[in-house]
Structures are given as structure tokens and as C-alpha cells.
């Protein structure tokens, strides 16, 4: 069973707020798969998640497209992946992906659709879509009832959904 929650972000600020709520409630070991085109807000949402995880201000959360993985200290460590450039699953092994995903931090993976078969069973999938320059549709789904209900409740309390 896959539960789905659909949110609308009216602005970049909304996207950051949604990310922050996710980061505030995130549980150790949570994996968030970010799916969406260039410019749909994957990195922005992750910046929000970092704020929610209390990543210190002196760390700018920038796009991991070039470096493939960026790590940040926080309430939980944040592992920010961009798997767009990877040629195949072997590259994922070389990056030590399994160690990150099985660790205590929060793993956020941009372009996760490229590695769907390597995402854990309880992954939280976030699909992002540009509706206009500013607006984004953000769709949350997970097979993990626990993660899904936790985030849904928090996002509803935060005025979303």
C-alpha cells in the first residue's frame, strides 16, 4: 500500500518551509528520494530539510551535481546525493551508497528515479513539478506508514495539505 499526499508550494519560501518541516521531523536513517526535472526545486527542498535538521549556518547547502555527495553535520547528519551523473549501479557502490543509506543520518537523493531499485523499502518519495515560475506541485508518498503519517501530520500542522 502506498499512501500519497499532494501539496502545493506557491513560492520558493513555501518549498523551503516544506523542507524544513520534513527535516524537523525526520527520523534517523530516513531516505528521501527526490524526483523532478531541472529547476523543479529539489535542491531548494533539501536546503529546507537541512534547516530542519539544524545544519549550522556556516554550511551552505549547495547543489551536489558536481561532487555527487555532500555531507553536513546536524541534529542528524545530512547526506545529499545527486545521482544524475552516475553511469550505473556499480558507481553507486563505489560511492559507498549503502553505507550512507544504512547510517543514522538522513539521506536525500536527487534524480532518484535513476536508482529506483536501490532505494530502501521504506523510502519517502517526493515528486516535484513546476507549475509556473514560482509554483510547484510536491507529491509525497511512502510504503512506510510510520514515516508517511509522521510527515503528513507535521505538514498539515504547518498549514500545508
Amino acid at each position: 500500500m502506498m499512501s500519497v499526499l499532494i501539496l502545493r508550494s506557491k513560492s520558493l519560501e513555501d518549498t523551503l518551509r516544506i523542507g524544513r518541516i520534513i527535516g524537523e521531523r525526520a527520523l534517523p536513517g530516513m531516505v528521501i528520494a527526490l524526483v523532478g526535472d531541472l529547476g523543479s526545486g529539489k535542491t531548494s527542498l533539501t536546503q529546507g530539510i537541512a534547516a530542519g535538521l539544524e545544519v549550522p549556518d556556516e554550511y551552505y547547502v549547495t547543489s551536489p551535481s558536481f561532487t555527487l555527495v555532500n555531507e553536513y553535520p546536524g541534529r542528524l547528519p545530512l547526506y545529499h546525493f545527486d545521482v544524475y551523473r552516475l553511469a550505473g549501479p556499480a558507481d553507486l557502490d563505489d560511492l559507498g551508497y549503502d553505507d550512507y543509506v544504512s547510517g543514522a543520518g538522513l539521506t536525500a537523493v536527487e534524480w532518484a528515479e535513476k536508482i529506483m531499485d536501490r532505494l530502501p523499502e521504506d523510502v519517502v518519495i517526493v515528486r516535484m513539478k513546476s507549475l509556473s515560475d514560482e509554483e510547484r506541485a510536491i507529491e509525497l508518498s511512502s510504503r512506510s506508514e510510520e514515516s508517511f503519517e509522521l510527515l503528513k501530520k507535521a505538514l498539515e500542522e504547518g498549514g500545508f495539505a
Binding site: 551552505y60 547543489s63 551535481s65 558536481f66
Partner: peptide, 13 residues
């Protein structure tokens, strides 16, 4: 410094 994408990355994208 950049807050999101690097300049070279913007070219690539």
C-alpha cells in the same frame, strides 16, 4: 560563494 549551483554547473545544466 554560491548558495546553490556553481557557475560551471549552470553551464552544464
Amino acid at each position: 560563494q554560491t548558495r546553490d549551483d556553481a557557475a560551471g554547473e549552470a553551464f552544464d545544466k
